[in-house]
Amino acid sequence: MTALAASRTRWGEVILRQLFFFCALISVLTTITVIGILAVETFSFFQEVAVTEFFFGTEWRPLLEPKAYGILPLLAGTMLIVVGSSLVALPIGLACAVYLSEYASQRSRHIVKPILEILAGIPTVVYGYFALTFVTPGLRQVFDDVQIFNAASAAIVVGIMVLPMVASLCDDALRSVPGSLREGAYSVGATSFEVTARVVVPAALSGIFAAFVLAVSRAIGETMAVTLAAGATPNLTLNPLESIQTMTAYMVQVSLGDTPSGGLAYKTLFAVASVLFTITLAMNLLANKVMRKFQEVYD
């Protein structure tokens, strides 16, 4: 009887394993490349434009004379969209989630959930169309001084766009609160509102918070609807009825033009993208961290 031989190396297995590993690594390489490119180009941008001008300048005019490179107008434009869309998406999304998890019968759940999924799957360019052909004309009937391109219209459709995500993530968070907590609350004489608002929602708060952060991050990165509906006027304003420009819309504007590669105008693309990427990445990291903590509590 022979002893078990020392295991021989199976080269096929080893090579396959390395191949799989490389595929998984592509995601990390993607991140590293994004950060690398943004860092290099932004660095070279700051060789020509002062950091203080970029972050504190109140005018953004990189494509026309006299040039100005203050990102504040673009940030203000993005902020208007974020605030406006949050006003739409966060309360309504949470209300949908409360309805789905606390009130809806199985049957209506099976109807409403797919509809929200369809809303989530509609391409953003369609929302841009909706803003221009439906929301803006509507706004112009209500208010007198609404410009054709305005932040409010874009913010409303961006809100509609991220609403399903808020609803779905908040629904997950509310449903992960154990039913026994609801029963405990009812057993001391609470009404359905008190159970929901004072026990279930607070218990799911970190999950809801993470959903809100992800929604805001989505709104910041949203491109097509704001490009179509909000305009291309860098504008340091708080008036949502005026035309503005967001960071993303500026990037589209540059790409659609004939900006020669390598020039300063071309580099603004990367500087703006760096700001956009840093903000959204920070928010996603925060949301994912809160979400993981939350899931640990009820596992």
Partner: peptide, 8 residues
Amino acid sequence: LAGVPSIV
């Protein structure tokens, strides 16, 4: 990465 804006 799933949350990085598509424009990036």
